[in-house]
């Protein structure tokens, strides 16, 4: 009886998601009165066991097999399935990252069990559990019941902050165990074959200043006034799906449910109406300034500050004012 946590790593580097998963697992395990176990898939992840212990994993299983040379959804899921069986796990948990959701979906499919993705609250009961999960990329919550002998869940990304149990000391007794799953070649079919390309340094998600433009910008060329201001503030240009769909900006600039989630100190949203799918990508910004000709636009209502005017007049004026003050 355990809460088994899939510890996400990439070629031996622990993902932030693994820490978040352990943080979400601890209170759940306490409530159930069972220990937290972690699984690291692949020999190259063995050195991460101590960190996992620091974050609350009482036992860390390192799964080793010659086929576990890199990430692959089937290999990871089958390994986790076998360990879950061996431990008779009550819960198998991970974070709702790309890999977390993918592996849990494969695990659930292989086990013939339900899988609840992106949970924000898990309440164990004697009967079916009560769970709240996010829908629409976070615009909506869904209360569900989950009836299954083993609960397979992911925690919504960033729902659990990553603080270690013992922030200052490394005094946790690490219990490390080897686990050798029985795998055949079929699980290797979906394994990573290689890596390439440099994604154009997409720092949109971490940029401290983002200047976003929407349909109101009017054209691809119209974005030059946003580029200018972004450069002055060492920020990045973002956009709405309307701008992407018109071919004005690449999809890598898109902010929102099916784009990037940003969390800048300041987000200046120009000519963007503030549809809910855009908003979920922008709402983590500390301060939002809307520039819109329509005082009733949702973005204006939700922003901290607004200028009700044509962005093509306001943005150049802001850039000009910045230059004037810097030259002074």
């Amino acid at each position: 009886m355990t809460v088994l946590v899939l510890l996400e790593h990439d070629r031996g580097e622990l993902a932030e998601a693994a820490r978040q998963a352990l943080n979400a697992a601890r209170p759940l395990a306490e409530e159930l009165g069972v220990p937290v176990h972690g699984v690291l898939v692949g020999e190259d992840a063995a050195p991460l066991a101590q960190t996992a212990a620091d974050f609350g994993a009482e036992v860390v299983h390192v799964a080793t097999h010659e086929l576990l040379s890199d990430y692959g959804p089937d290999a990871w899921a089958e390994t986790t399935r076998q360990l879950g069986d061996a431990l008779d796990a009550d819960v198998v948990l991970s974070v709702g990252s790309d890999r977390g959701n993918e592996v849990m979906a494969h695990l659930a499919a292989r086990s013939g069990l339900p899988f609840v993705a992106n949970c924000s609250r898990i309440a164990p009961n004697l009967g079916p559990w009560s769970i709240t999960r996010i829908q629409w990329g976070g615009s909506l919550l869904e209360d569900v019941t989950l009836a299954a002998p083993r609960k397979i869940v992911t925690i919504a990304h960033h729902a659990a902050a990553a603080t270690p149990v013992h922030p200052d000391c490394r005094a946790v007794d690490l219990r490390l165990e080897r686990f050798e799953p029985e795998l055949d070649e079929s699980v290797a079919v979906t394994m990573i074959r290689g890596r390439d390309g440099q994604r154009r340094g997409s720092t949109l998600s971490t940029a401290p200043v983002v200047i976003g433009g929407g349909r109101g910008v009017g054209s691809a060329d119209g974005f030059s006034v946003l580029e200018e201001l972004a450069e002055l503030l060492q920020g990045r240009v973002g956009c709405s799906r309307a701008a992407t769909n018109n071919g004005w900006r690449p999809h890598s600039d898109q902010v929102g449910q099916t784009g990037t989630r940003i969390s800048p100190d300041v987000y200046i949203a120009a000519g963007i109406s503030g549809a809910i799918q855009h908003w979920v990508g922008a709402m983590a910004a500390k301060k939002i300034v809307a520039i819109n000709t329509d005082p009733d636009a949702n973005m204006v209502a939700k922003a901290d500050y607004a200028v009700i005017a044509d962005l093509h007049e306001v943005l150049p004026a802001i850039s000009e004012e910045i230059r004037r003050r810097r030259d002074a």
Partner: peptide, 27 residues
């Protein structure tokens, strides 16, 4: 095994918007 009970809207942060101006003079 997953059954819908109900949907809810998350609690919305209500903010008051400070209007900085109605023209380029707001720069």
């Amino acid at each position: 095994g997953q059954a819908l009970v109900r949907l809810r809207r998350p609690v919305e942060q209500t903010s008051t918007t400070t209007i900085l101006g109605n023209s380029a003079a707001a720069a």
